[in-house]
């Protein structure tokens, strides 16, 4: 019983949701740390970012982590869909009048919609950068590493994307919208993850809640600043 309990039960689905969600929070921190390097200006910026990109694509530990990240996203999405479908089934006949706004926060009730927006964004984001890195599009800009290898120049790709005369600002706005969605998703998801894993104690709840709110505001905000910074502030290349 115990084994199937950990795979099939409603609670198990919640654990996986929480576990993958919280892992993805960690991923966001790592990703943000890398991206913030884009705010740097001057000659060294390109070298620094590309070296970082190289490290991220070649280091075996990072590679494993990136696979885990992709798996987590996939799992989080599939699990989320299953949960949503189950939850719909649990109330086949709805209310004529239903006022959930009186008893719960908007973000907590719309994790599915927020998640869908985020998923769409992830796809766009991957096409924009990861796809370009993997499957061409960067042939005109290559970067010579310290070891003398030639790799694709992700820095230039990024800066050009957001400095594009036609699309640059649009991209920035799309990214902003996505970051707002992530913000709301985190606003509920961070604390919710702890609750689902059973981490709830009157002594520490306030702390967890504050960290969650801080995380939900600061992380997406910093992410969202980058495209606008590149478009408006950074020297054009």
């Amino acid at each position: 019983m115990a084994k199937s309990a950990l795979l099939k039960s409603s609670l198990a689905k919640k654990y996986w949701m929480a576990f993958t969600g919280l892992f993805l929070c960690l991923f966001l921190v790592g990703h943000l740390a890398g991206n913030l390097q884009l705010l740097a200006a001057g000659e060294g910026a390109r070298d620094q970012f590309n070296e970082y990109a190289l490290f991220m694509t070649t280091n075996p530990i990072v590679r494993v982590l990136s696979i885990v990240t992709f798996a987590s996203i996939l799992f989080h999405v599939i699990d989320g869909i299953i949960l949503t479908v189950n939850n719909r089934k649990a109330r086949p006949e709805g209310y004529v009048s239903f006022k959930p706004s009186t008893n719960s926060k908007w973000s907590s009730r719309n994790m599915g919609i927020l998640g869908t927006v985020i998923l769409a964004f992830i796809i766009i984001h991957l096409i924009n950068f990861w796809g370009q890195m993997k499957f061409g599009g960067l042939d005109d800009t290559v970067y010579q590493t310290a070891n003398g290898e030639t790799v694709k120049d992700l820095y230039t790709l990024t800066i050009r994307t957001f400095q594009d005369a036609e699309m640059g600002l649009i991209w920035a706005i799309i990214y902003l919208i996505a970051m707002i969605a992530i913000g709301f998703h985190l606003y509920h998801g961070f604390g919710s993850g702890f609750q689902s894993l059973g981490i709830n104690h009157p002594k520490y709840n306030t702390f967890v809640r504050r960290v969650g709110v801080g995380f939900a505001i600061i992380v997406p905000l910093l992410f969202a600043i980058i495209p606008f910074y590149i478009y408006f502030v950074l020297e054009k290349i």
């Binding site: 309990a5 919640k14 189950n86 089934k89 649990a90 008893n103 719960s104 689902s196």
Partner: peptide, 23 residues
């Protein structure tokens, strides 16, 4: 284990921690 198993069997939905129940 037994109570959660039965709860699932009855067709209740999953908790998404909205907190509406507590309110």
């Amino acid at each position: 284990l037994a109570m959660v198993e039965q709860m699932d069997k009855e067709g209740f939905g999953n908790c998404t921690n909205t907190g509406a129940c507590e309110i």
